[in-house]
Nucleic acid binder design. Sequence first.
DNA 1: ATGCCACCTGGAGCCCACTCCAGGTCAAGC
DNA 2: GCTTGACCTGGAGTGGGCTCCAGGTGGCAT
Lengths: 124, 124
Amino acid sequence: MLPDVSVYTPGQVVEETGFSLDTLRYYERIGLLESIDRNAAGQRRFTQKDVGWLGMIRCLRDTGMPIAEMLRFAEMTRAGDHTVRERIALLEAHDRRVQEQVDNLRERQVAIRNKIAYYHSVVD
Amino acid sequence: MLPDVSVYTPGQVVEETGFSLDTLRYYERIGLLESIDRNAAGQRRFTQKDVGWLGMIRCLRDTGMPIAEMLRFAEMTRAGDHTVRERIALLEAHDRRVQEQVDNLRERQVAIRNKIAYYHSVVD
DNA sequence: ATGCCACCTGGAGCCCACTCCAGGTCAAGC
DNA sequence: GCTTGACCTGGAGTGGGCTCCAGGTGGCAT
């Protein structure tokens, strides 16, 4: 029998998403992941949708969104289509912060490179 | 009498650097700032050089360098000119990490913008 | 049938980087 | 001379985000 390709074990999700198993459990505990299915033995079985949502989480985490805000986003997502405008607002605000981060990093990077260049001038 | 323009009170340094007073004291405690001068009353008096060093700290902090690594950098700086090559190595490694951060942020930003665009397509 | 491994739970612990607190000192302005 | 405010110290507390632990279950390979 073919394996159900759209169902993932915890180990596969760890592999797939780069989150640790403990982190996945933590996210479920705090409500960032909702109602993960279980098999007969009580082990988690993630759907394709769960993995997709974790991709979104990864994206928001890596761009510095605090968990509290992701939680609000998760709740909006669960609440249905009438929250789409709110979600747009949240993501657009976040996008602006990401842009600020990028700009700030680039600026600081220039200073660091200047320092490196100065050190080179000292040493050469 | 003209004020000594190259000496700063704690309040001025807070203003100047954006670090809180507690953070400045914390940095001194852990050795990230060395031997800040005191006036007769035991109050800190920062030199131009201290403020410059804090600018460097700000730069490294804002680009995500952990305090432990800044501490190593601080120690090298104190140790004298024979550490300049090591310092270059440290900063170049850091610069590469900053570049990775920027690249990663930009990539994630594309995904976020796609999500926003998708939401717009749903709502319009 | 016996390891062994992946998984489970609730709860405690950890790390980082601050941040706050209590109780005190000095200096200047009213 | 008294208040106000900027500063001092040592030490405890906080918040975010995991991470680890003890003790247990179920299934598969040898």
